[in-house]
């Protein structure tokens, strides 16, 4: 499933595409919201690994403005619940992700992102 969590970890890896290749831009997406177990420990552990700006921007593009522009140092329950929802409950089921640098399109179908490249596109 492509949730914003996975999306935050995927960069374009096409041949010679090394700069400005993240975050991939969602296009024509079909979203599904599915509840997930709230696990503050997981969220706190994962926070340092998030590219915060990419997450906030992507959430806003999908219509969710609940995250602050800067990652807070002190986290409360309300913040963690918002983060939980954005990272783990919004599923992109169909659509695509486009590289902002080279324009390569990575399709998403049945919730699975296709990051495969053809032989001549591999670096």
């Amino acid at each position: 499933m492509v949730r914003l969590l996975t999306h935050n970890l995927l960069a374009c890896h096409a041949k010679d595409c090394n700069t400005n290749n993240f975050p991939l831009q969602f296009k024509d997406v079909q979203l599904e919201i599915r509840e997930a177990d709230f696990n503050p420990e997981f969220l706190k552990g994962f926070m340092p690994k998030i590219d915060w700006k990419a997450l906030v921007d992507t959430a806003r593009q999908l219509g969710d403005t609940s995250l602050p522009l800067e990652q807070p140092e002190m986290v409360d329950d309300e913040f963690l619940k918002n983060l939980h929802h954005i990272l783990l409950e919004i599923h992109v089921e169909e659509g695509s992700m486009t590289c902002p640098n080279c324009g390569h399109v990575y399709p998403i179908s049945n919730g699975i992102p296709n990051m495969l490249l053809a032989e001549h596109e591999i670096g």
């Binding site: 970890l9 890896h13 993240f22 699975i112 490249l117």
Partner: peptide
Amino acid sequence: VVNGSLTTPFQNR
């Protein structure tokens, strides 16, 4: 899950 080869989708991040 990601449909991709080896670790390539995650190498950058």
